[in-house]
Design a protein around this nucleic acid. Structure first.
Length: 233
DNA sequence: AACTCGGAGTTCATTAGTGG
DNA sequence: CCACTAATGAACTCCGAGTT
């Protein structure tokens, strides 16, 4: 299975059938597991669906080669973003301006960015919490760059709170928590001497890509600590 | 030029899932 | 039950390529 980066480097152009195949191949990397989604957007896509998204405005119109449609890398990114956000409970109306207005790098960031990046951008209350956290804690270089990512702002226009299909955390609850409610942490001992703490409002990764990003982030954060220990007598 | 063929797009109706 | 939305099927139109 090719990665997005590999595909991007080849500057590809596909007919509709190939485009659907490639997209289905990649879909599992960027979609939450089927059991965590409550609609049909976790299912494989087909040519009819691609045309449907195009007429809905979620995808740019394809290039034309004679009478045949030609799809390029940008169409692939748009399709994956549409499917992912649909799976997360966003409506087509909310997704449309994102896929149309964002450039390729922003769409890639949406697909590959960490779970916090995606979910909190969709939830103004959590975004507020994040901003408070940013003021009170130093952030790592990678986390800071993620926060500064253009994908994050402005927030998605019609977030799950407005879409009744998804039971997103209620904004009033989240803000109440920020006003002084006690946070609860769960402790998990990974190895003897190594413990991870998870706050109750932490949103877990929903895709393999996000899990990978999270693990990399953790490794990055631990690196200086381990390095300091090794170099100390 | 006229015709045929086939792919793409559009429209309408319908189904299915979900929440109020 | 109703309203809304995503998704699909069928029928149709449009348009470009190929053939005569």
């Amino acid at each position: 299975m090719s990665t997005l980066q590999q595909i991007a480097q080849t500057n590809p152009e596909w007919d509709l059938e190939m485009f659907v195949d490639i997209a289905n191949d990649l879909l599992s990397q960027f979609l939450p597991p089927a059991e965590t989604t409550r609609n049909r957007s976790s299912e494989a896509i087909n040519a009819r669906l691609v045309r449907y998204y195009t007429t809905q405005g979620g995808l740019d119109r394809p290039l034309r080669q004679g009478r045949e449609a030609r799809y390029i890398y940008r169409h692939l990114l748009q399709l994956l973003v549409v499917r992912r956000l649909l799976a997360q409970g966003y409506s087509m109306a909310a997704i449309k301006p994102i896929t149309v207005e964002k450039d390729n790098s922003a769409l890639e960031a949406l697909l590959q960015g960490g779970v916090q990046l995606t979910v909190e951008a969709a939830n103004p209350a959590l975004a507020f919490l994040q901003s408070v956290q940013a003021r009170t804690q130093p952030v790592s270089a990678s986390a800071a760059s993620a926060l500064a990512d253009p994908v994050q702002s402005p927030p998605l226009p019609s977030a799950p709170a407005a879409n009744r299909r998804l039971a997103a955390p209620d904004a009033s609850q989240a803000t109440a928590k920020s006003a002084g409610e006690v946070s609860h942490w769960q402790r998990v001992e990974v190895l003897p001497g190594l413990e991870v703490q998870v706050r109750d409002d932490f949103v877990p990764p929903s895709t393999p890509q996000e899990q990978e990003n999270l693990l990399q982030l953790i490794a990055q954060q631990l690196k200086p600590l381990f390095h300091a220990r090794r170099s100390s007598p």
